[in-house]
Computed example of a mutant assay.
Amino acid sequence: MKLDKFVIAIIVSILLAYFFPQPGSSQSPIPLDTISSLGVSLIFLFYGLKLSTAELVRGLRNWKLHVLVQGTTFVIFPILVLLVYPFIHGEKQQTIWLSFLFLAALPSTVSSSVVMVSMARGNVPAAIFNASISGIIGIAVTPLWIAPFLSQQQASVDTAGIYLSLLLDIVLPLAIGLSLRRWLSEFARRNSKKLSLFDKTIILLIIYKSFVHSFEEQVFSSMEWLDIGVISALVVALFYLVYGLTGWLARRMGFDTADRIATQFCGTKKSLVHGTVFSNALFGQSSAVGLMLLPLMVFHALQILIISIIATKLGQRTTD
């Protein structure tokens, strides 16, 4: 399998943040914070334009599958990380553990989940429903998992401010996009590739800005290559644990192959788009944002690689 171009772009963005930090530094005259904030709002406005309410209504029928997928995404995933919490000691371990909880509490992806399920000849309508509704649920649920542990790391946490930020940056643009679907949904459909490119550009900008701040504050100075290797190994273990668990639960619940594929593919995905957006709301201008995003970026690359290989094999097997 070829390395995903977006994964390569992420690596390039981090390298640019290290070698050319001036545009994203706190002294830079370029208003990257404002640009990224406006970009995020436009991402979710366009998402509202593309969101098919008809598909969502049709998808409500398969409720057992939806409960399992959303339960895996927002309950099982975070609980698996919480089980390790009693064994965490020291500020460095606490920060890395929090980055894993942040990863675990995020919603699923939209486009890649649907594409992979389609490749594997799974239940595509169920994938569309779960991937779409996951992002909406995550706006409310993800901060609930993170806020109690933020209060232990910071003097005070403005929970109301977090939700207000999410409301203004995500919910309001999403609502505007949904209200404009009647007139602009066809425009969004025709320009889906360009809108996808815009989404990725904003995400890369946020990643660049986050890592510039982290490098400025020398957040990674205490980390060695061994630490990064351990983080990567833990990400792989977490992915396969959830993938195996969702498959086992799907079989126990009597799902057919198509539903099991949708369950495993949607239940194991985590959204880099929501992760970068939520990191701004939850962690603000903290220099540790880059570290908070590190497991998520490793997971993003991993999920694309592994699921695409599995999807290709399943697709070939079902056509034999």
Rank of each mutant, 00 (worst) to 15 (best):
Ile306Lys: 01
Phe220Arg: 04
Tyr47Met: 06
Tyr85Leu: 14
His213Thr: 13
Ser52Cys: 03
Phe102Lys: 05
Leu49Ala: 10
Leu238Ile: 11
Phe129Ala: 05
Leu49Trp: 03
Val219Thr: 10
Thr109Asp: 15
Asp259Gly: 10
Leu305Ala: 09
Gly71Arg: 03
Gly244Met: 08
Pro107Asp: 05
Ala288Asn: 15
Lys269Gly: 10
Leu296Gln: 06
Asp4Gly: 05
Thr34Glu: 15
Gln152Val: 10
Pro29Thr: 15
Ile128Thr: 10
Ser99Ile: 04
Lys313Trp: 08
Leu51Glu: 02
Asp227His: 14
Asp4Tyr: 15
Leu42Phe: 13
Pro107Glu: 03
Glu216Asn: 14
Leu226Ala: 10
Leu302Asn: 02
Leu98Arg: 07
Ala288Ser: 14
Ser111Thr: 09
Glu186Cys: 08
Ile304Lys: 05
Ser214Thr: 05
Ser111Arg: 07
Ile136Asp: 01
Gly284Arg: 01
Phe278Val: 02
Leu45Phe: 14
Leu164Ile: 04
Gly284Trp: 02
His66Gly: 09
Ala281Glu: 00
Ser151Pro: 02
Gln94Ile: 06
Leu184Ile: 04
Ala127Val: 14
Ile137Thr: 05
Ala281Asp: 02
Ser221Ile: 11
Ile128Gly: 02
Val277Gln: 01
Ile207Glu: 00
Trp225Asn: 05
Val40Gly: 03
Pro295Val: 08
Asn62Ser: 13
Arg181Trp: 04
Glu216Thr: 11
Gly39Ile: 00
Val40Thr: 11
Met1Pro: 12
Arg189Tyr: 12
Gln93Pro: 03
Gln22Lys: 13
Val84Glu: 04
Thr53Tyr: 11
Phe100Asn: 08
Ile228Val: 09
Glu55Thr: 15
Val219Gly: 00
Phe44Glu: 00
Leu293Met: 07
His89Leu: 08
Gly247Trp: 08
Ser151Arg: 11
Phe265Cys: 01
Thr201His: 01
Lys92Ala: 11
Ile176Pro: 01
Gly24Arg: 01
Pro21Thr: 10
Ala233Ser: 13
Gly244Asp: 09
Phe20Asp: 07
Ala17Glu: 08
Arg121Asn: 11
Trp248Asp: 07
Val117Met: 04
Phe187Gly: 04
Ile43Val: 12
Gly267Ile: 04
Pro21Ile: 12
Ile136Leu: 15
Ala258Val: 05
Gly135Phe: 07
Ala281Gln: 05
Val84Asp: 06
Asp259Tyr: 12
Ile136Thr: 09
Leu294Glu: 00
Arg61Leu: 12
Gly290Ser: 06
Pro78Lys: 12
Phe283Trp: 06
Ala120Lys: 02
Asp256Met: 08
Ile76Phe: 14
Tyr85Pro: 00
Leu197Gly: 07
Phe100Arg: 12
Ala105Ile: 04
Leu241Ser: 13
Val157Ala: 08
Pro23Tyr: 12
Phe102Pro: 00
Gly71Met: 09
Thr312Ile: 13
Ser286Gly: 15
Phe211Asp: 03
Lys5Glu: 05
Leu294Ser: 04
Leu293Lys: 00
Trp248Ile: 09
Leu226Tyr: 06
Pro295Ser: 14
Leu249Val: 07
Val117Tyr: 00
Ser286Ala: 15
Leu302Lys: 05
Tyr85Cys: 06
Asp259Val: 11
Ile133Gln: 06
Arg182Gly: 09
Ile309Val: 14
Pro295Ile: 01
Pro29Ser: 13
Asp199Val: 01
Ser111Ile: 13
Phe102Asp: 03
Leu168Phe: 08
His213Ser: 13
Ala160Pro: 00
Ile146Arg: 07
Ser151Ala: 15
